[in-house]
Design a protein around this nucleic acid. Sequence first.
RNA 1: GGUCCUGUGGCCGAGUGGCUAGGCUCAGCUCUGCAAAAGCUGCUACAGCGGUUCGAAUCCGCUCGGGACCUCCA
Length: 509
Amino acid sequence: MEQKLYIYNTLTRKKELFHAPNAPHVGMYVCGPTLYSDVHIGNCRTFTSFDIMFRYLTHIGYKVRYVRNITDVGHLEDENAGTGEDRIGKQARLKKLEPMEIVNRYAFGFREVMGLLNLLPPSIEPLASGHIIEQIEMTQEIIKRGYAYEKDGSVYFDVEKFAKEHNYGVLSGRSLEDQLNNTRDLDGQEEKKGRLDFALWKKAKPEHIMRWNSPWGEGFPGWHIECSAMGKKYLGETFDIHGGGMDLIPTHHTNEVAQSVGCCGNAPVRYWVHTNMLTLNGQKMSRSLGNVFLPVELFTGMKLATDSPSATPSQAKLDGKHPLFEKGYSPMTVRFFMLQTHYSSTLDFSNEALQAAEKGFRKLMEAIRVLGKLKTGATSTSNISALQQKCYDAMNDDFNTSILLANLFEAVRIINTVNDGKETITESDLNLLRELMHDFVIDVLGLKDDIRESAGDTTEGLMQLIIKMRAEARAKKDFATSDLVRDELAKLNIVLKDSKEGTGWELKS
RNA sequence: GGUCCUGUGGCCGAGUGGCUAGGCUCAGCUCUGCAAAAGCUGCUACAGCGGUUCGAAUCCGCUCGGGACCUCCA
C-alpha cells in the first residue's frame, strides 16, 4: 500500500513528506543508551517511540535497517570540560569489576526491559568499543580536512573554523554568537582553541581504565564520534532518519552533524526526529536530577532493595512498596500509556493516568478477543474501510498514535455493538476489521495481551471448566453457588463477564 | 541571564481558523436472577487581556503560570 507519510524534521522545523531515495530501503539510526547504570523509564519512552516508527515504516512496505547503538566506552562525567571520571570506569572501580562486566550487566537488563515492553530488536546494535578503528579513521579524515587539531595526545574539533563555512547550528537553531556568549565558563579547557571545541579523541590519564592505542597515543574516543562513525559504516554517508531524545539536539547531534560534514562534506541525515521527555511531577526525569525510577519498579509497584544484585526485572530483589506507585502496571499498560501521547509532547507520570491507561488497554484487548467470535450479517452498519483509512491517515501524520488510538476505540465500539447484536457486519467487512485491528494494534503499536498471556493454557482450561459448572448452577437457579464462584474468583482478581453468548473472564492486574 | 517550547473539560491527552478526537472518572438508562461486562445518553473545555477576521481554543501582541536547553542525560 502506498502511503504518504509526513515526518516532522528538526532540520526544517516542519512536517515534510517522507521521501527515501533508496526506497524500499530505509536507514534509521537512533542514539541508544550509555550503559553505566540501568535504563530508566524515560529512556524507554524514547526507544518505544522509535520502535513505533520502525514498525510503521516496515508495515507500509519499507525495508528498514534500524541501527541503535550501545555506548560502552566510558565517557567523562563532564564531557565538555574534559574533566571528571569516566562513568563506566568509575562503576568498574567501585564494584571491582571489568568495565565490560559493567556494560554487559546493564546491556542484559536493557534488552530484557526492551523485550518486556515488546520493542522489536534493532537490525544492528553496535557497540562503540567495537568501532574504535572506525572512530580513529574518521578523526584522521577530519584532521586531514582541516576541521580538527591535535593537542597533547587529544584531538579536538575546531568549531569556529567549521562554522565559517557551514551552519554549525542547523539543528539547534542557535547562532554561533549566542553559543559563544552564553556558554558558561568551564574548567579544564586550556587545551582547546575555542570554547565550543569538543573532543574527537581524548588522551587517557594513567588511572583511566578504558583505553586504546591511536596515532595520538593511548586514549579513548570522544562521545559524539561513535554515532557518526557507526552511522556512516552501516547506513552510509547520508541516510534517511536519525533519532534520539530532544535533549541531544544542542550538543550531541549538533556535533554529530559537524563531524560528519567535516569528514565527508555532506549532511549525514535527511530527517532528524526528536522525541520529547518523560516527566515526573512536571520535571524531566533524568539520571542527573536523580528523579528516576526503574522499569521493574513501575511494573511491580515495588521498590528495588538496596542490596539487590541487579535491577534487571528477572533478577531484581524487591523490598516493599514503592512510594510513587499505588500498584504495579504491566509493561503493556505502560506501553499503551506512552502511546496515548504524541512522541513530541512531554508525558507526565501519575497513578491516575496510569490507571486510566490500564482500563483503556484492557478494553482494547477484550475487544480483540471478542472480535474472534463475532457473527456476520447481510449488511454492515459501519464503514470499516473508511475507518481503516483514518488509521493510516493518523499514522501518516507524523506517527500520531494518539489519533490512531481514538480510531481504534471507534473499532472497539463497533466490535462491541455487533457483539451485542445492536449492529451488524458483513463477512468481508469483518475480515477487514480483523485485518485492521491486527495490523494496527499488534503490528504497528506492538501491543499484546500480556496479562492474559501470563495466565497460560492451564488456567484457560480451568476457567472454562469453572465457567461451565457455574453455568449449570445458574441453569438450576442455584444462585448461591454461582455467586460464590463469582465472588471467590473476584478475590483472585478474576472477573466473570456474562453475556448472551456465554460467560467470559478477565484477569485484573 | 540567553535561546526555545508550553498552558485544553473532574483527570490524562489529540487537534484544525468555522464541521468542536479518544481514554479514564461521574450520573442516568438498556441488558441481567443480582452484579459485573457491554451499549446508549448526559456533563462540553480550550490561562488572562487586547488585536486580526464574517468567524479563533486554533493567527498576532502583551501579562501570568509551567517546562526544556545553554554542563553529562533518551
